[in-house]
Deep mutational scan, measured.
Amino acid sequence: LIVDEAINEDNSVVSLSQPKMDELQLFRGDTVLLKGKKRREAVCIVLSDDTCSDEKIRMNRVVRNNLRVRLGDVISIQPCP
């Protein structure tokens, strides 16, 4: 998924579009594992966002710094076991 700027300022939340959440079989409030660069990982709570496009994930600056990614970078997402 492509990293995009978050609207809310919550450090533990990322936003996906509802069709993408359905495709990944995620529900609102699920915890997910995000994988960024240099084997960096972060655990976040996923919320749906109608304004977010299907191929993007919204996260704020703190999460991006933790993953060592910038806007427009590609990250992977998976549900936490």
Rank of each mutant, 00 (worst) to 15 (best):
I57W: 01
S15P: 02
R40P: 07
R40C: 09
D49C: 02
Q78P: 04
A6Y: 03
C52N: 03
R64T: 03
K20T: 08
E41Q: 08
D73C: 03
V63P: 00
L16M: 10
D49G: 05
N65P: 00
D73G: 05
L33M: 13
N11A: 07
L16A: 02
L24E: 02
V13R: 07
C44W: 01
S12P: 06
E55F: 09
D22G: 07
P81C: 04
L24C: 02
N60E: 04
E5T: 07
A6E: 07
L47R: 12
V63Q: 09
L24A: 02
I75H: 02
D30I: 02
R64V: 03
R64D: 00
C80Q: 15
L24H: 03
V46D: 01
I2S: 05
R61W: 07
I57V: 11
E55H: 10
D49R: 02
S15T: 12
R64N: 03
D73Y: 01
R70G: 14
M21T: 01
D22N: 10
R61Q: 10
I45D: 05
D22K: 09
C80K: 02
L26Q: 01
I7A: 11
V62L: 12
C80F: 09
G29H: 14
K20M: 14
L1C: 07
A6M: 15
G72H: 04
C44Y: 08
C80Y: 07
V43T: 09
Q78T: 12
M21Q: 01
G72N: 10
E41S: 08
A42P: 01
N11Q: 10
I57F: 00
I2Y: 03
V69S: 04
E9P: 14
M21G: 00
L16S: 02
S53V: 11
T51I: 05
R68C: 07
N60I: 02
M21R: 01
D73I: 02
I45T: 15
L26K: 02
V74C: 10
D30Q: 15
K37H: 04
N8S: 10
K56D: 04
E23S: 09
R40Y: 15
D10K: 12
L34V: 10
L16F: 04
R39Q: 15
S76W: 05
D4W: 08
L24N: 02
E5Y: 14
P19G: 14
R68Y: 15
P79V: 12
D49P: 01
D49A: 06
C44E: 02
P19E: 15
P79M: 08
I77C: 08
D54N: 09
R58T: 02
V69H: 00
N65F: 07
C52M: 11
S53R: 10
G29F: 06
L71G: 13
D54G: 08
N60A: 12
N60H: 10
K56S: 14
F27P: 04
C44R: 07
V3R: 00
R58Y: 08
N65L: 08
P79S: 11
E23Q: 07
L71Y: 03
S17L: 01
N8T: 14
L16T: 01
I7K: 11
R61H: 06
V62A: 10
I75N: 01
R58G: 06
K20L: 13
R28C: 14
V3S: 01
C52V: 09
T31H: 10
S48A: 14
R39S: 13
N66L: 12
V32K: 01
A6W: 12
V43N: 05
V46P: 03
D4G: 08
I77S: 00
V63W: 03
D10M: 09
R61Y: 09
D73W: 03
S12Q: 15
Q18A: 12
R64E: 02
I77N: 00
D73H: 06
K38A: 13
R61S: 11
E9Y: 06
P79H: 10
V46R: 00
V32L: 06
V69K: 02
G72V: 00
N66H: 03
Q18N: 02
C44H: 03
E41P: 06
C44A: 11
V32R: 00
G29T: 03
R68S: 15
L26W: 03
G72A: 04
V62S: 14
V63G: 04
Q78V: 14
D49Q: 04
G29C: 04
L47Y: 08
R61D: 11
P81T: 11
N8P: 08
K35D: 03
M59G: 00
Q25S: 13
E5V: 09
D49H: 04
P81H: 04
V43R: 15
V62Y: 05
F27E: 15
L26F: 04
R68G: 13
L34K: 01
K37V: 09
I2A: 03
L47I: 10
V46C: 09
V46G: 03
D50H: 11
R40D: 08
K38Y: 08
V74Q: 14
D73Q: 12
K35G: 08
G29Y: 05
M59K: 00
P79N: 11
N65G: 09
D50M: 13
P79F: 12
E55Q: 12
V13A: 07
L71R: 07
D49L: 00
D4L: 05
D22E: 10
D50C: 09
D10H: 15
T31V: 07
T51F: 06
D4H: 10
V43D: 08
E41A: 04
N65D: 13
L24V: 03
R28L: 13
K35C: 14
E41K: 14
L71D: 08
V43C: 12
E41D: 07
N66G: 11
M21A: 02
S53A: 11
M59C: 09
P19S: 14
C52H: 03
E9F: 09
T51W: 04
I45E: 14
L16E: 01
E41T: 07
R70C: 15
E5L: 07
S53G: 11
R28I: 09
G72Y: 04
D54R: 05
G29E: 05
V74G: 08
M21I: 07
F27T: 15
V69D: 00
R40W: 09
L16P: 01
P19K: 04
P19N: 04
I57M: 05
N11P: 12
Q18E: 07
I75D: 01
V63I: 13
M59Q: 00
R40V: 13
G36N: 14
E41M: 07
K37I: 05
S15V: 15
N66E: 14
S53E: 12
A6P: 13
R70Y: 12
D4M: 10
L67F: 03
E41G: 04
M21W: 01
T51P: 04
R40Q: 10
P79E: 08
D22Q: 13
R61M: 05
N60C: 05
K35A: 08
I75F: 01
K56N: 15
N8L: 11
R40S: 09
V46Y: 00
D22L: 12
M59T: 04
N11F: 05
I2G: 03
